[in-house]
């Protein structure tokens, strides 16, 4: 058995239960804190799967920036993000969609695991900054998608500022 199995299982359990809490929690602040736990568990999983650079990115971008941004927005909301309770029809539809999606995903993933998606001994060579950097910056690999994320972020900034100013108070 893999020596990493116990920590991987622990991180998976934490990720699942914190995600469940995000979905079911009534208070928005509690949901954000659960999202932080979820993000940390996912970062641990990345680190265990030999993806150190992605784990650091997850910690900095998700736990550090996005979750804190969510926290600020929830704190800015007038009633602390009070939410109407879901109607029974909505709950039924949501659970139905979740179950159907789960069945579809497991049907699709079955052949992938049966085909022997093994964790080979190649783990030591991947995940280095050099290797990931070559994937991101070598022409013909992921260079163009990576460069396109820069205008994407710029458009996101301009969009959110424009949205806020257009809707904003006359001041």
């Amino acid at each position: 058995m893999d020596v990493f199995f116990a920590p991987v299982l622990a991180a998976c359990v934490v990720a699942f239960f914190s995600a469940l809490f995000v979905v079911t929690a009534r208070g928005a602040i509690r949901a954000v804190v659960a999202l932080l736990a979820h993000s940390l568990a996912i970062a641990a999983l990345y680190a265990l799967l030999a993806a150190g650079l992605v784990a650091v990115g997850q910690l900095l971008i998700y736990s550090g920036a996005i979750v804190v941004l969510f926290l600020f927005v929830v704190a800015l909301l007038p009633p602390g993000g009070r939410e109407l309770s879901s109607q029974p029809l909505r709950v039924t539809a949501g659970i139905l969609v979740g179950l159907v999606l789960l069945a579809a995903l497991f049907t699709g993933l079955g052949p992938a695991t049966a085909g022997g998606l093994q964790l080979t001994g190649a783990g030591a060579e991947i995940g280095s900054v050099t290797g990931v950097g070559h994937q991101l910056f070598d022409a013909g690999k992921l260079l163009i998608p990576f460069e396109l994320t820069a205008p994407l972020l710029l458009v996101a900034i301009i969009g959110s500022v424009a949205l806020w100013r257009r809707q904003g108070a006359p001041s």
Binding site: I61, I66, L69, V132, L153
Partner: peptide, 17 residues
């Protein structure tokens, strides 16, 4: 892993908007 990093950036843009 490189694709996962790009997805992280897209998630950040989506969260902002």
């Amino acid at each position: 892993q490189a694709t996962a990093l790009i997805v992280l950036v897209i998630a950040a843009a989506e969260a902002v908007v």
